[in-house]
Write a protein that binds this DNA or RNA. Structure first.
Lengths: 167, 167
DNA sequence: GGTCAATAGACTTTCTTTGACCTAAGTCTA
DNA sequence: TAGACTTAGGTCAAAGAAAGTCTATTGACC
């Protein structure tokens, strides 16, 4: 097994259900796995991204630390976030697959639905000759439309919370 | 006997009845059969296609692998017809909606799946400026890809989505 | 002999690991 | 209290590992 995967596992096991937050020292961890400290950063950068539902905070110097926080959101909120913040106006094929994989893993869409979505943004589907950036734009729109459809069916369960008004 | 056939046999024997999935290292296998690694790709591309009921997943880089998953096909007749005869190379929005409606009615796809498909071929999704005939071509390809996904569903295992690598 | 499947190999892309160097935050002392 | 030292995390680039793609050649069968 890859070291990166082992470290990922380790961190996820530290983070239990009721404690969606863990704090660790980079050097200690690196020591423990006898790897370069920057390996830890690599794991964080590839496995604990906002896409994957995590936020990283850290601090250098004496008493420094790295804190990993799992963002807990309802499926509705997760979908809204993807539609409104994450996707934007262009989406590469690789990114699309990643997002679909995430949603499947989180149980927000079924495997069959994921298969359909993957097909809809596949090269197969977009095989008509056109520049890559147009394909990316199309993928973004298609994904948003599909996720909106999914969000629509969850309406009752996860209403978007009313915006907080701090004034 | 041809090498390709031998390799095909070998892989199929690894995949027993109750374990419809096998994971292998390309280089190892090539080593074992003393052939070029790309020979393995050739075998996969010609013998383990979706048409033949297989899905291939793979990952590059350190600790990379190739996974072959056998799928069981569901009620294909109608879908095959749509994919191969009905749709062709162009499909208007209205036609697409009609086909999706029929499949729902016939219980071949769920209502949720239908919603996703409708979204994927909606004007929303295809809203990028482009000539109408290109849109119709795109709709045709998208529908075919999605229906193919439905035809080949019932995969037994889930792939771990590849990590995002922002580097 | 021509055609299509099979094979090998060169080159490309993606993901991982390591290491050298950089920066920020405490701590201590003149 | 400014500056030096120590502690700790951050960045980046290069090297390594493994799979993918493309193309030219070879071989088998009509």
């Amino acid at each position: 097994m890859r070291l990166s995967d082992t470290i990922e596992q380790f961190i996820k096991e530290l983070m239990t259900q009721e404690e969606p937050e863990v704090e660790l020292r980079r050097n200690e961890l690196a020591e423990y796995f006898s790897c370069a400290p920057s390996q830890i950063n690599y794991v964080l950068a590839t496995r604990f991204t906002p896409d994957n539902g995590y936020i990283i905070e850290s601090r250098r110097g004496g008493g420094g630390y790295i804190r990993i926080v799992r963002i807990v959101r309802s499926s509705g909120q997760r979908l809204q976030w993807m539609i409104r913040e994450r996707i934007g106006t262009a989406l590469t094929g690789v990114e699309a697959l990643r997002l679909i994989g995430q949603l499947t893993q989180e149980g927000i869409i079924t495997r069959d639905e994921a298969d359909i979505m993957r097909a809809a943004v596949s090269d197969q589907a977009l095989g008509v000759p056109m520049p890559e950036n147009v394909k990316d734009a199309l993928r973004a729109r298609t994904m948003k439309a599909m996720l909106t459809a999914v969000a629509g069916k969850n309406r009752q369960n996860d209403a978007v919370p009313p915006p907080s008004n701090p004034l």
